[in-house]
């Protein structure tokens, strides 16, 4: 079963060296997950100040600066994993270094037939 782990945190709460450290630890985690066949994908995201929102209304495309919702914590990265069940996904989420500063939201992936899958 696939799970998307969405990492939310306050972007301004990270120093440069904390970020670097977190990336290095995350890379190690992806390698460990990959060795167990549980890794499907992962990436940090650029700051929310680079975000662009797109919506189509009445057939017209609207492009605006910024994220869809202004919140205290921003989406800063993700892991896409394969886990046996929610307990295993919770254990992996707890090993994501950013969980020590922010919050990891676990969302089960819905299977949709006809969709090109990652693997």
């Amino acid at each position: 079963m696939k799970y998307m782990l969405l990492i939310y945190s306050d972007e301004n709460a990270w120093t440069e060296s904390e970020k670097e450290h977190c990336y290095a630890e995350s890379v190690q985690l992806t390698q460990k997950l990959n060795a167990k066949g549980q890794y499907l994908g992962s990436s940090p995201l650029h700051s929310v100040s680079t975000a662009t929102s797109v919506r189509i209304r009445d057939g017209k495309r609207l492009v605006t600066d910024g994220p869809f919702a202004e919140t205290h914590e921003q989406l800063g990265g993700y892991f896409l994993i394969d886990a046996k069940d929610l307990d295993e996904a919770i254990n992996i989420a707890g090993r994501i270094p950013a969980a020590r500063k922010g919050t990891v939201e676990i969302r089960p992936i819905m299977e949709l037939s006809g969709l090109l899958s990652d693997q």
Partner: peptide, 14 residues
């Protein structure tokens, strides 16, 4: 069902 919460007694550590 959807998030697949397992039907099991947790491991000793948990």
């Amino acid at each position: 069902r959807d998030a697949r919460i397992p039907y099991q007694v947790p491991a000793i550590a948990e």
